[in-house]
Every structure is written in structure tokens, then in C-alpha cells.
């Protein structure tokens, strides 16, 4: 696999976008669950404004990286800095307040609330929820929540209960709640998993449009190589807790070693690679 490494820790500078200071920077991250190395020396810089896709087989440690970057898991070794400040040891709450949002592989919506209430609660959480007797859906929060949902194309389902949505809408609502917190960086864990193939591209287009408009930097774990080829600025290939390759999609997704060892030997390059 070492032959497949492009733009890894050794030559990261070659692939680094022009901006000098990374928004998120991981160095030497290590974390093992028993004998399984979920992170085995992860070095990665996420540059402001970029869309970085993380690909790799199940169990490679992709979600572990997101969990470590959001305070859910603490690495046994290594550092993570966000905007130049170390964030290891901070609680998820403290990290969210610094500007890192996340969405989940299984959308974490308040299922007994409406979609509108979910969005409004996230907006209220950012503003400070400690007002015990003012209605959540008072004018300001209601209008802001509707505007947010409209941007994600969720306006028509605002009054539906969150558990009545289909998977695609649930995924979008989950990400909308992360965006409501006005983060500078969003980490998305498989934003299209479980979504019907016919709807996948539409959802990703909506997502990318909103995130680009907002100027949010995004890291997303993805299994669909067409989605990666079309929307990622860079691709990081995870394998057994290590970054096996890192670079532009047209380069990484055409690498025979990546195709063989990560995507699967039978796989052919994605149709959109190189465009």
C-alpha cells in the first residue's frame, strides 16, 4: 500500500492548497480498541474552504477520526489543533462552541419534535437556550429556522415530525442542524448512506450548494466514488487506521493501488473522476 501514498504525511506540502494555515490539523493520532488500531499515526491538514472526502473500507478508522476531532473519543497519542488551538481533551460541547459541527451516520434528530422545532432548537442552542419561559417558536427563531430549512429544501416538511421523514430528508435535516450552529468546519459521517441511489446526487448537490454559499469547510466520509469524484477537492484514503493516499480525486481515484486495495479489485474508476 505504501506505493499508493500520494500527498500523505511525507509530501503533504505538494498537495496543500495555497492557504498557509490549516483549519484543522492532526498529528500522530493513535487510538486502538483492544488489538484493533483505529488510528495508527494519522497526520492530516484540512485547509479553510476545502471539501475533503475520506474514503476507505469499513473498520478503517474513518468515523474514529471524526469522533476524535469532535471530542467524542480521546486519542491515546497525538495532537489535533483547530484554528491553531489544541482541542484534545475538550468536551464535544466545548468543541462545538469553537466552531466544529458534525452530522451522524445515523441522523441524530429529536424524533418527537417537528423538523421546524429541530432546526429552531439548534438555532436557539447557538444563541443560548437558557430562557425557560419564552416559546421556542417565537418569531425570531421560527423565521430563522424556516429560512435554514428552505435553504436545504426542507421547507415543505417543516411541520412534519422528524421520525416521519425519509432517509434523504433526515440526512439533510441532520446536517442543517449542524449548520444552524454557524460552524466554520463541518464533519459529516456518510451523508448519503442509506439514501436511495436516485436521490443521492440531488441531496449532495443541495448540501454542497448550501455549504459553499456559507463558506463552510467540510470533511465527509463517503462510500460513493461518483459523489467523491464530483464534489471533493481532495480525497484522503483511510486503510487500517492510516492515511494510504491523499490528493485530488482524479489522481487518487485512478491510482491502481487504491482501486485494488481500498475500493476493491473489480472496481473501475468512477465515471466522473478527472472532471
Amino acid at each position: 500500500m505504501s506505493a499508493a501514498v500520494h500527498g500523505g504525511p511525507q509530501d503533504r506540502g505538494a498537495n496543500r492548497p495555497r492557504q498557509a494555515t490549516p483549519l484543522l490539523s492532526a498529528r500522530g493520532l493513535r487510538l486502538a480498541f483492544g488489538g484493533v488500531k483505529a488510528a495508527d499515526g494519522i497526520d492530516l491538514d484540512v485547509m479553510p474552504g476545502e471539501f475533503l472526502a475520506i474514503i476507505g473500507p469499513n473498520g478503517a478508522g474513518k468515523t474514529t477520526f471524526i469522533n476524535m476531532s469532535t471530542g467524542y473519543l480521546k486519542p491515546q497519542d497525538g495532537t489535533i489543533t483547530y484554528d491553531g488551538q489544541p482541542i484534545i481533551g475538550l468536551s464535544p460541547r466545548a468543541i462545538v462552541r469553537r466552531g466544529i459541527g458534525r452530522s451522524f451516520q445515523l441522523p441524530q434528530l429529536f424524533t418527537e419534535h417537528t423538523v421546524l422545532e429541530n432546526a429552531a432548537l439548534a438555532i436557539a442552542a447557538h444563541a443560548g437556550i437558557w430562557s425557560p419561559f419564552t416559546p421556542l417558536l417565537r418569531r425570531g427563531y421560527h423565521d430563522q429556522a424556516m429560512a435554514l430549512l428552505d435553504r436545504f429544501g426542507l421547507g415543505p416538511v417543516a411541520q412534519s415530525r422528524a421520525d416521519a421523514l425519509n432517509e434523504g430528508a433526515r440526512k439533510l435535516a441532520d446536517i442543517a442542524m449542524a449548520v444552524a450552529l454557524q460552524p466554520r468546519l463541518v464533519l459529516m459521517d456518510e451523508p448519503t448512506s442509506g439514501v436511495a441511489a436516485a436521490e443521492k446526487m440531488g441531496i449532495v448537490e443541495t448540501l454542497v450548494r448550501v455549504l459553499r454559499d456559507t463558506g463552510v469547510t467540510a470533511v465527509f466520509v463517503e462510500h460513493d466514488m461518483d459523489v467523491v469524484a464530483r464534489f471533493a477537492d481532495r480525497v484522503a484514503v483511510w486503510s487500517q487506521g492510516r492515511i494510504a493516499a491523499l490528493g485530488p480525486p482524479q489522481q487518487v481515484l485512478n491510482d491502481p493501488a487504491v482501486l485494488r486495495d481500498v475500493i476493491g479489485i473489480e472496481a473501475s474508476p468512477p465515471s466522473g473522476a478527472g472532471h
Binding site: 464535544p92 429529536f110 432548537l121 421556542l136 427563531y141
Partner: peptide, 30 residues
């Protein structure tokens, strides 16, 4: 009082503990 509280952001967050406590934490709410 309880009716007003349950409709407030804190009251809705309270109901959120039942369904998605993780999300509350990742919204920066204790």
C-alpha cells in the same frame, strides 16, 4: 408555568434528552 416552560427552548431541549441526548451535547448544550 409548566406549559410555558415545556414550549420554551429549555423545555424542548428537556424533551430532547428522551430522544437524542447525544445531539444536545453536539449542539453545545449541557
Amino acid at each position: 408555568l409548566v406549559r410555558a416552560y415545556l414550549a420554551s427552548p429549555m423545555g424542548r431541549a428537556l424533551a430532547g434528552i428522551k430522544t437524542r441526548e447525544t445531539r444536545l451535547e453536539f449542539m453545545g448544550v449541557s
